[in-house]
Simulated scan of single mutants.
Amino acid sequence: MTAALLLASLAAATGMLGARLDRAHWPARLPKHAIVIWQALSWCFVTSVLLAGLALAVPSVPWGVDGLAGFVGACAALVRDHYATPGGAAAGGVGLLVVGTVVSSIGVRACAEVRMLRRARARQRSAVTLVADHDERADVWLLEEPRPAAYVLPGRVPMIVVTTGAVADLHDGELRAVLAHERAHVDGRHDIAITVARILHRALPGVPLLAAAAREVPRLLEMHADDRAAQAHGRRALATALARLAGALRPGTEATPVTLRSTGGDAAARVERMTDAARRGRCWQRCALGAVALVLLLAPLALAAAPAVEAAVLDYCPVPLG
Protein backbone atom coordinates (compact mmCIF):
# COMPACT_ATOMS: atom_id res chain seq x y z
CA MET A 1 0.00 0.00 0.00
CA THR A 2 2.87 2.37 0.78
CA ALA A 3 4.21 2.18 -2.77
CA ALA A 4 0.81 2.98 -4.29
CA LEU A 5 0.31 5.95 -1.94
CA LEU A 6 3.78 7.34 -2.61
CA LEU A 7 3.35 6.96 -6.35
CA ALA A 8 -0.07 8.61 -6.24
CA SER A 9 1.40 11.48 -4.20
CA LEU A 10 4.24 11.86 -6.67
CA ALA A 11 1.77 11.94 -9.56
CA ALA A 12 -0.34 14.57 -7.79
CA ALA A 13 2.70 16.70 -7.00
CA THR A 14 4.08 16.65 -10.53
CA GLY A 15 0.65 17.03 -12.13
CA MET A 16 -0.24 20.13 -10.12
CA LEU A 17 3.03 21.75 -9.05
CA GLY A 18 4.97 20.92 -12.22
CA ALA A 19 2.66 23.15 -14.25
CA ARG A 20 4.12 26.18 -12.43
CA LEU A 21 7.34 25.77 -14.37
CA ASP A 22 5.83 27.95 -17.11
CA ARG A 23 6.12 30.92 -14.72
CA ALA A 24 9.89 30.57 -14.35
CA HIS A 25 12.34 32.79 -16.24
CA TRP A 26 15.30 30.42 -16.54
CA PRO A 27 13.83 28.27 -19.38
CA ALA A 28 14.46 31.13 -21.80
CA ARG A 29 18.17 30.93 -20.94
CA LEU A 30 18.33 27.13 -21.21
CA PRO A 31 15.52 26.05 -23.57
CA LYS A 32 17.07 22.68 -24.38
CA HIS A 33 17.31 21.74 -20.71
CA ALA A 34 13.85 23.13 -20.02
CA ILE A 35 12.41 20.87 -22.71
CA VAL A 36 14.06 17.88 -21.04
CA ILE A 37 12.56 18.92 -17.68
CA TRP A 38 9.07 19.20 -19.19
CA GLN A 39 9.45 15.78 -20.76
CA ALA A 40 10.81 14.29 -17.53
CA LEU A 41 7.90 15.77 -15.55
CA SER A 42 5.40 14.34 -18.04
CA TRP A 43 7.11 10.94 -17.87
CA CYS A 44 7.14 11.09 -14.07
CA PHE A 45 3.41 11.85 -13.90
CA VAL A 46 2.23 9.24 -16.40
CA THR A 47 4.58 6.54 -15.10
CA SER A 48 3.62 7.25 -11.48
CA VAL A 49 -0.08 6.86 -12.30
CA LEU A 50 0.49 3.60 -14.16
CA LEU A 51 2.79 2.14 -11.53
CA ALA A 52 0.45 3.16 -8.71
CA GLY A 53 -2.30 1.19 -10.42
CA LEU A 54 -0.02 -1.79 -10.90
CA ALA A 55 1.14 -1.61 -7.28
CA LEU A 56 -2.49 -1.86 -6.17
CA ALA A 57 -3.07 -4.82 -8.48
CA VAL A 58 0.04 -6.85 -7.60
CA PRO A 59 -1.37 -8.65 -4.50
CA SER A 60 -4.57 -9.74 -6.27
CA VAL A 61 -2.88 -11.04 -9.44
CA PRO A 62 -1.08 -14.37 -8.76
CA TRP A 63 1.11 -14.22 -11.84
CA GLY A 64 2.07 -10.66 -10.93
CA VAL A 65 3.34 -11.68 -7.49
CA ASP A 66 5.12 -14.80 -8.73
CA GLY A 67 6.72 -13.00 -11.67
CA LEU A 68 7.89 -10.07 -9.56
CA ALA A 69 9.18 -12.37 -6.83
CA GLY A 70 11.14 -14.43 -9.33
CA PHE A 71 12.57 -11.30 -10.94
CA VAL A 72 13.99 -9.91 -7.69
CA GLY A 73 14.71 -13.29 -6.10
CA ALA A 74 12.31 -12.81 -3.21
CA CYS A 75 9.68 -14.90 -1.49
CA ALA A 76 6.29 -14.55 -3.17
CA ALA A 77 4.52 -14.35 0.19
CA LEU A 78 6.70 -11.45 1.28
CA VAL A 79 6.15 -9.63 -2.01
CA ARG A 80 2.39 -10.04 -1.59
CA ASP A 81 2.57 -8.74 2.00
CA HIS A 82 4.65 -5.72 1.02
CA TYR A 83 2.20 -4.69 -1.71
CA ALA A 84 -0.95 -5.67 0.23
CA THR A 85 -3.75 -3.10 0.43
CA PRO A 86 -6.71 -2.84 2.83
CA GLY A 87 -9.16 -3.10 -0.06
CA GLY A 88 -7.80 -6.43 -1.25
CA ALA A 89 -9.24 -7.56 -4.57
CA ALA A 90 -11.36 -4.39 -4.86
CA ALA A 91 -8.25 -2.19 -4.67
CA GLY A 92 -6.56 -4.43 -7.22
CA GLY A 93 -9.52 -4.01 -9.54
CA VAL A 94 -9.32 -0.23 -9.18
CA GLY A 95 -5.62 -0.35 -9.98
CA LEU A 96 -6.16 -2.37 -13.13
CA LEU A 97 -9.00 -0.03 -14.15
CA VAL A 98 -6.72 2.99 -13.77
CA VAL A 99 -3.97 1.36 -15.82
CA GLY A 100 -6.37 0.24 -18.52
CA THR A 101 -8.04 3.65 -18.75
CA VAL A 102 -4.78 5.60 -19.01
CA VAL A 103 -3.16 3.21 -21.49
CA SER A 104 -6.24 3.02 -23.72
CA SER A 105 -6.77 6.78 -23.65
CA ILE A 106 -3.18 7.50 -24.64
CA GLY A 107 -3.25 4.77 -27.30
CA VAL A 108 -6.48 5.99 -28.89
CA ARG A 109 -5.36 9.60 -28.89
CA ALA A 110 -1.95 8.68 -30.29
CA CYS A 111 -3.50 6.80 -33.20
CA ALA A 112 -5.91 9.65 -33.96
CA GLU A 113 -3.22 12.32 -33.71
CA VAL A 114 -0.72 10.49 -35.89
CA ARG A 115 -3.37 9.74 -38.51
CA MET A 116 -4.48 13.40 -38.57
CA LEU A 117 -0.93 14.70 -38.89
CA ARG A 118 -0.06 12.27 -41.68
CA ARG A 119 -3.09 13.29 -43.70
CA ALA A 120 -2.57 17.01 -43.16
CA ARG A 121 1.12 16.85 -43.98
CA ALA A 122 0.48 14.71 -47.05
CA ARG A 123 -1.95 17.33 -48.36
CA GLN A 124 0.55 20.12 -47.75
CA ARG A 125 3.41 18.16 -49.30
CA SER A 126 1.34 17.53 -52.43
CA ALA A 127 0.44 21.20 -52.66
CA VAL A 128 4.05 22.31 -52.23
CA THR A 129 5.38 19.90 -54.87
CA LEU A 130 2.79 21.20 -57.33
CA VAL A 131 3.43 24.93 -56.93
CA ALA A 132 7.02 25.18 -55.65
CA ASP A 133 10.41 24.60 -57.26
CA HIS A 134 13.01 22.39 -55.58
CA ASP A 135 16.48 23.88 -55.21
CA GLU A 136 18.61 20.74 -55.00
CA ARG A 137 21.78 22.57 -54.05
CA ALA A 138 20.21 24.22 -50.98
CA ASP A 139 17.68 21.40 -50.52
CA VAL A 140 14.79 23.82 -50.10
CA TRP A 141 11.48 24.34 -51.89
CA LEU A 142 11.01 27.85 -53.30
CA LEU A 143 7.39 28.98 -53.18
CA GLU A 144 6.17 31.88 -55.30
CA GLU A 145 4.75 34.16 -52.62
CA PRO A 146 5.53 37.87 -52.05
CA ARG A 147 5.13 37.61 -48.27
CA PRO A 148 8.41 36.48 -46.61
CA ALA A 149 8.06 33.18 -44.77
CA ALA A 150 9.94 29.97 -44.07
CA TYR A 151 8.77 26.72 -42.54
CA VAL A 152 9.45 23.00 -42.51
CA LEU A 153 7.06 20.15 -43.25
CA PRO A 154 8.21 17.26 -41.00
CA GLY A 155 8.07 13.66 -42.11
CA ARG A 156 10.26 10.84 -43.36
CA VAL A 157 11.62 13.22 -45.97
CA PRO A 158 11.27 16.71 -44.44
CA MET A 159 10.64 19.65 -46.74
CA ILE A 160 11.99 23.12 -45.98
CA VAL A 161 9.85 25.74 -47.76
CA VAL A 162 10.95 29.33 -48.37
CA THR A 163 8.94 31.97 -50.16
CA THR A 164 10.32 34.22 -52.87
CA GLY A 165 9.44 37.12 -50.59
CA ALA A 166 11.86 35.84 -47.98
CA VAL A 167 14.62 35.42 -50.56
CA ALA A 168 14.03 38.99 -51.77
CA ASP A 169 13.71 40.67 -48.36
CA LEU A 170 16.40 38.87 -46.37
CA HIS A 171 20.12 39.40 -46.78
CA ASP A 172 22.28 36.34 -47.44
CA GLY A 173 23.35 36.00 -43.80
CA GLU A 174 19.80 36.41 -42.56
CA LEU A 175 18.47 33.83 -45.02
CA ARG A 176 21.18 31.34 -44.03
CA ALA A 177 20.28 31.87 -40.36
CA VAL A 178 16.59 31.20 -41.09
CA LEU A 179 17.43 28.03 -43.02
CA ALA A 180 19.70 26.90 -40.17
CA HIS A 181 16.78 27.42 -37.79
CA GLU A 182 14.55 25.20 -39.92
CA ARG A 183 17.26 22.54 -40.27
CA ALA A 184 17.63 22.52 -36.49
CA HIS A 185 13.95 21.54 -36.32
CA VAL A 186 14.60 18.75 -38.82
CA ASP A 187 17.78 17.44 -37.18
CA GLY A 188 16.25 17.47 -33.71
CA ARG A 189 12.96 15.88 -34.83
CA HIS A 190 11.16 18.58 -32.90
CA ASP A 191 7.86 17.54 -34.43
CA ILE A 192 7.97 14.32 -32.37
CA ALA A 193 8.36 16.21 -29.08
CA ILE A 194 5.44 18.48 -29.98
CA THR A 195 3.26 15.54 -31.01
CA VAL A 196 3.97 13.58 -27.82
CA ALA A 197 3.14 16.61 -25.67
CA ARG A 198 -0.14 17.12 -27.57
CA ILE A 199 -1.08 13.45 -27.31
CA LEU A 200 -0.59 13.35 -23.54
CA HIS A 201 -2.53 16.57 -23.05
CA ARG A 202 -5.46 15.44 -25.18
CA ALA A 203 -5.48 11.95 -23.67
CA LEU A 204 -5.49 13.36 -20.11
CA PRO A 205 -6.97 16.85 -20.56
CA GLY A 206 -7.59 17.56 -16.88
CA VAL A 207 -3.93 17.52 -15.85
CA PRO A 208 -2.42 21.04 -15.51
CA LEU A 209 1.12 19.75 -16.08
CA LEU A 210 0.32 18.18 -19.45
CA ALA A 211 -1.65 21.23 -20.58
CA ALA A 212 1.30 23.49 -19.73
CA ALA A 213 3.78 21.13 -21.41
CA ALA A 214 1.74 21.11 -24.64
CA ARG A 215 1.87 24.91 -24.59
CA GLU A 216 5.48 25.43 -23.51
CA VAL A 217 7.36 22.70 -25.40
CA PRO A 218 6.71 24.20 -28.89
CA ARG A 219 7.78 27.65 -27.65
CA LEU A 220 10.98 26.31 -26.14
CA LEU A 221 11.76 24.28 -29.27
CA GLU A 222 11.68 27.50 -31.28
CA MET A 223 14.18 29.03 -28.86
CA HIS A 224 16.37 25.93 -29.06
CA ALA A 225 16.35 26.13 -32.87
CA ASP A 226 17.23 29.83 -32.56
CA ASP A 227 20.26 28.96 -30.45
CA ARG A 228 21.44 26.37 -32.99
CA ALA A 229 21.10 28.87 -35.83
CA ALA A 230 22.74 31.68 -33.87
CA GLN A 231 25.77 29.52 -33.10
CA ALA A 232 26.44 29.13 -36.81
CA HIS A 233 25.36 32.52 -38.20
CA GLY A 234 25.29 34.98 -35.33
CA ARG A 235 22.57 36.31 -33.07
CA ARG A 236 22.21 39.64 -34.85
CA ALA A 237 21.54 38.10 -38.26
CA LEU A 238 18.91 35.76 -36.84
CA ALA A 239 17.26 38.51 -34.77
CA THR A 240 16.96 40.75 -37.84
CA ALA A 241 15.55 37.91 -39.91
CA LEU A 242 13.01 37.02 -37.23
CA ALA A 243 11.90 40.63 -36.98
CA ARG A 244 11.43 40.85 -40.77
CA LEU A 245 9.49 37.61 -40.94
CA ALA A 246 7.34 38.39 -37.91
CA GLY A 247 6.49 41.81 -39.29
CA ALA A 248 5.12 40.22 -42.46
CA LEU A 249 3.16 37.49 -40.65
CA ARG A 250 -0.59 37.68 -40.95
CA PRO A 251 -2.69 37.05 -37.83
CA GLY A 252 -3.71 33.42 -37.56
CA THR A 253 -0.75 32.06 -39.54
CA GLU A 254 1.48 31.13 -36.63
CA ALA A 255 3.06 27.72 -36.27
CA THR A 256 0.78 24.68 -36.26
CA PRO A 257 1.40 21.00 -35.41
CA VAL A 258 1.59 20.32 -39.16
CA THR A 259 4.39 22.79 -39.83
CA LEU A 260 7.21 24.40 -37.85
CA ARG A 261 7.73 28.06 -38.72
CA SER A 262 10.63 30.36 -38.05
CA THR A 263 8.13 32.81 -36.59
CA GLY A 264 6.52 30.22 -34.30
CA GLY A 265 5.99 31.08 -30.64
CA ASP A 266 6.33 34.65 -29.38
CA ALA A 267 8.44 36.17 -32.15
CA ALA A 268 8.92 39.49 -30.34
CA ALA A 269 10.24 37.74 -27.23
CA ARG A 270 12.55 35.62 -29.35
CA VAL A 271 13.96 38.69 -31.08
CA GLU A 272 14.57 40.33 -27.71
CA ARG A 273 16.19 37.14 -26.47
CA MET A 274 18.58 37.07 -29.43
CA THR A 275 19.64 40.68 -28.79
CA ASP A 276 20.25 40.09 -25.07
CA ALA A 277 23.63 38.37 -24.84
CA ALA A 278 23.33 38.10 -21.05
CA ARG A 279 20.50 35.57 -21.29
CA ARG A 280 22.60 32.46 -21.17
CA GLY A 281 22.68 29.62 -18.69
CA ARG A 282 25.71 28.63 -16.66
CA CYS A 283 27.42 25.27 -16.43
CA TRP A 284 26.28 24.55 -12.87
CA GLN A 285 22.69 25.24 -13.91
CA ARG A 286 22.95 22.72 -16.73
CA CYS A 287 24.38 20.09 -14.38
CA ALA A 288 21.69 20.74 -11.77
CA LEU A 289 18.91 20.47 -14.34
CA GLY A 290 20.39 17.24 -15.66
CA ALA A 291 20.36 15.81 -12.13
CA VAL A 292 16.75 16.91 -11.60
CA ALA A 293 15.70 15.26 -14.87
CA LEU A 294 17.43 12.03 -13.85
CA VAL A 295 15.64 12.03 -10.49
CA LEU A 296 12.28 12.59 -12.18
CA LEU A 297 12.92 9.72 -14.59
CA LEU A 298 13.97 7.25 -11.90
CA ALA A 299 11.75 8.25 -8.96
CA PRO A 300 8.58 6.38 -10.06
CA LEU A 301 10.55 3.23 -10.83
CA ALA A 302 12.36 3.37 -7.49
CA LEU A 303 9.15 3.87 -5.51
CA ALA A 304 7.39 1.05 -7.32
CA ALA A 305 10.27 -1.38 -6.89
CA ALA A 306 11.14 -0.49 -3.28
CA PRO A 307 8.78 -3.02 -1.59
CA ALA A 308 9.96 -5.86 -3.85
CA VAL A 309 13.59 -4.95 -3.23
CA GLU A 310 12.94 -4.85 0.52
CA ALA A 311 11.38 -8.30 0.32
CA ALA A 312 14.43 -9.59 -1.51
CA VAL A 313 16.79 -8.09 1.08
CA LEU A 314 14.91 -9.80 3.95
CA ASP A 315 15.68 -13.12 2.26
CA TYR A 316 13.27 -15.39 4.14
CA CYS A 317 9.71 -16.68 3.81
CA PRO A 318 7.30 -16.29 6.73
CA VAL A 319 6.17 -19.61 8.15
CA PRO A 320 2.48 -19.67 9.07
CA LEU A 321 1.84 -20.82 12.68
CA GLY A 322 -0.81 -23.29 13.75
Rank of each mutant, 00 (worst) to 15 (best):
A288V: 08
W26P: 07
A193V: 09
G155V: 07
R125H: 00
D66H: 12
A299N: 07
A267D: 06
A246H: 06
A112M: 14
V128T: 08
V313W: 11
R80N: 10
A76R: 04
A193N: 03
T2F: 11
L6Q: 04
D227R: 03
R219M: 15
V98H: 07
L321A: 13
A214S: 07
L50G: 01
A246I: 07
G264M: 02
C317L: 08
M1K: 13
P148H: 05
A214N: 00
V65T: 11
G15C: 06
P62Y: 03
R29I: 09
Q124C: 05
D187K: 08
R123Q: 13
L321M: 12
L143D: 03
R261Y: 13
G88L: 04
P148L: 08
A74G: 06
P205K: 06
H224E: 11
A278M: 14
A239I: 02
G290I: 02
A127C: 05
P86S: 07
S104M: 15
L5F: 07
D133V: 13
T259R: 08
A13K: 09
H190Q: 13
S262F: 02
I199P: 00
V313A: 14
L17P: 12
V128I: 15
R236I: 15
A193R: 06
A112P: 01
V295W: 10
A138I: 09
H233M: 01
A277L: 08
E145K: 11
H134N: 10
A138C: 08
C44S: 15
M159G: 03
S105L: 11
L130A: 15
P208L: 04
W141F: 12
A177D: 10
A232E: 15
G290M: 08
D81H: 05
A166Q: 05
L297M: 13
G173A: 13
A302H: 09
H171E: 13
F71Q: 10
F45A: 12
A293N: 07
D226S: 00
R137D: 14
L303H: 11
H224D: 14
D81M: 07
A312G: 09
A57K: 03
A69R: 09
L170T: 10
